[in-house]
Amino acid sequence: MSKKPKPPLIERLKPFVAPLRVDGSGEFHLRSYKTSERGGLDKEQGEKILDANRKRLSDLQERLYAQDRWSLLVIFQGMDASGKDSAIKSIFDGVNPQGCEVTSFKQPTIHELNHDFMWRSMIALPARGRIGIFNRSYYEECLVTRVHHDLLDKEKIPRKLITPGIWQERFADISAIENYLSRNGTVILKFFLNVSKKEQRERFLDRLEQPAKNWKFSMNDVIERAFWPRYMAAYQDVIRHTSTPYAPWHVVPSDHKWFARVAIGSAIVSALEELNLRFPRVDKASQEEFAKVRKALESEGRSGAGGATRVVKRPVKRPAKRG
């Protein structure tokens, strides 16, 4: 009895992607998403999927780069110690660094504050054929700035423009820009690493107990922890108002880092698979020239390595002179 063929990769990854995807088509409530979900997998099964995703992502990235038409923007958001850094390192392990760039957005500099809130992100967008990874992003301006209202003063916005509707305005601006980018060939994937307050506490303690991780700890992280309810309310509002089919959010259970990596990697691979990426085809004239070069190289091999290879160049057509 013949074995049934395996379903396409996208179908196999769907169970780890679909339940987490938020595209604005329905109501969204953050409390409905469990932070400890594991997708029915154990860690060993997860590692196998993660490894397979890495290999496929490496191949897809090469095709993306060669085709030079699409670009991919991957945005990571989450509370401190939610696993953003380690997820980026693990998921993109093995991807050619020439076609992939990570931008980490810290506290805005004076120069950045002299521009609009989207400016520093816009100059870091990936070019065609590239993968751009944002570790935090322009969404910070609807999160930390919303939790700490005094930060708005540092953005030098005219006071009459700072109204109670400023957050709705920013949601609209972000969605408009993401729509514009998608219409120009940038695939946008946004991930909220949803970690529990209890798990964050354990990770902070781990950083304090292990000397090699002490550098990761900051007293400011503990201070921000006191604002947890306000951050959760801000994230709910952000995801609810900026989830679209062209720039969906994925609410990723992150109490188990290995499963977060499985879910994120699966979503990225699935999105690239849907682009049907292909290596560019060589035109007929080039194929004929390649055949001549191949023949010359093979002839050189038969006659010895000392012989020179004569490559026939195509004549260059020059524009007619203007009289």
Rank of each mutant, 00 (worst) to 15 (best):
A226P: 11
N194I: 11
G46E: 00
S121W: 15
V144N: 01
H111M: 13
D68K: 11
G323M: 14
E199D: 07
D80I: 08
H111Y: 14
N135W: 02
N96S: 02
F171Q: 09
H115T: 03
L297K: 08
L151E: 02
A176G: 10
K321C: 04
I110D: 14
P280Y: 04
D80F: 10
T309H: 08
K160R: 10
D80K: 06
G323R: 15
R38I: 07
H115D: 00
R201P: 01
E224Q: 08
G185Q: 03
S104M: 06
R21H: 09
W215R: 11
F204T: 06
R159S: 15
N135C: 05
E300A: 13
L113G: 07
H115Y: 05
L41P: 03
T145R: 10
V95S: 01
S58F: 02
G99W: 01
K213C: 05
I123M: 11
H241Y: 12
Y235T: 06
R203W: 04
D23W: 07
A233Q: 11
E27H: 12
R54L: 05
L143C: 02
D283I: 14
G39V: 01
V102M: 04
R63M: 09
L113Q: 15
A52Q: 13
P97C: 04
V95A: 01
S104H: 09
R318W: 10
A260F: 02
L275A: 09
T163F: 02
A226H: 14
T35C: 10
R310E: 15
D221W: 08
H149P: 11
R56K: 10
E224V: 06
P319I: 14
G129F: 07
D80T: 06
W167H: 06
F217W: 09
M118E: 02
H115C: 06
Q61M: 05
K295F: 08
S25A: 12
E27W: 11
V147W: 00
W228H: 07
E37P: 07
K295N: 11
G265T: 00
L113T: 08
R294K: 15
E27D: 15
L143A: 01
D68L: 07
E202H: 12
G306M: 12
V74K: 01
A267W: 00
A52S: 14
G265Q: 00
G129P: 06
Q98M: 10
K313N: 14
F92H: 00
Y138P: 05
K284H: 12
N220M: 12
T109H: 03
G78F: 02
V147Y: 01
V252K: 00
R136A: 08
I131D: 03
Y65K: 04
L181T: 07
R56M: 07
R183K: 14
W249E: 00
K34L: 11
G24T: 04
E112G: 01
I162D: 04
P15C: 13
I75F: 02
K213M: 07
R31V: 15
